[in-house]
């Protein structure tokens, strides 16, 4: 077993534990959210091992950092009234959910795994996914959309300020 495989298996195992932790262990939403942070964090490392460095950095900064903090905020604000979320009655939807979930898993698995059989190396360039190569694309060919998306963020900020203005 090569070093790459060991690294992958360790990271993948942690990611799987994190994913399972979101839904399996207990019903504390804060704990679920923290498991999701773990999952996102390790996924970021997996991106690094694939050579997609910028994606990994953004995954950790944006998802594990910013978005999950927002999640935690919302959960903590809503937790006082979250009792109705936990309905323990079984109403026959469980088996259907299992069936649909298994079907989904098998479909996606078959679609993803089949083409991967016999693949030994990646055909992409070494520079794929490095901050330099993405930066070069962003600031040349995609400079205009890049600027527009900055205005999109500005719209979001100003819009939320407008909606948060006090009532008269």
């Amino acid at each position: 077993m090569s070093g790459n495989q060991i690294v992958f298996i360790v990271l993948a195992a942690i990611a799987c534990i994190g994913a399972a932790g979101v839904v399996v262990f207990g019903d504390n939403p804060v704990r679920s959210a923290l498991f999701l942070v773990l999952n996102f964090f390790v996924l970021g490392f997996l991106y690094f091992t694939l050579g997609a460095q910028l994606l990994g950095i953004s995954q950790i900064l944006v998802y594990a950092g910013a978005i999950m903090v927002l999640f935690l905020f919302v959960i903590m604000m809503l937790q006082q009234q979250s009792a109705f979320l936990r309905s323990t009655e079984s109403d026959g939807r469980g088996p259907i959910a299992w069936l649909l979930g298994a079907t989904m898993f098998m479909t996606v698995g078959a679609a993803v795994l089949a083409p991967l059989g016999g693949v030994t190396g990646s055909p992409i360039l070494d520079t794929f996914g490095t901050p330099q190569s993405i930066g070069k694309v962003l600031f040349t060919g995609y400079a205009w959309p890049f600027l527009i998306s900055s205005v999109l963020l500005l719209v979001g900020i100003v819009g939320s300020i407008l909606l948060a203005k006090r009532k008269f």
């Binding site: 205005v151 719209v155 979001g156 407008l162 203005k165």
Partner: peptide, 15 residues
């Protein structure tokens, strides 16, 4: 850009 700006403008009359 068009859509998000319009969502916010639609709700600007909070009273």
């Amino acid at each position: 850009v068009l859509g998000i700006a319009l969502y916010c403008l639609t709700g600007m009359c909070r009273q």
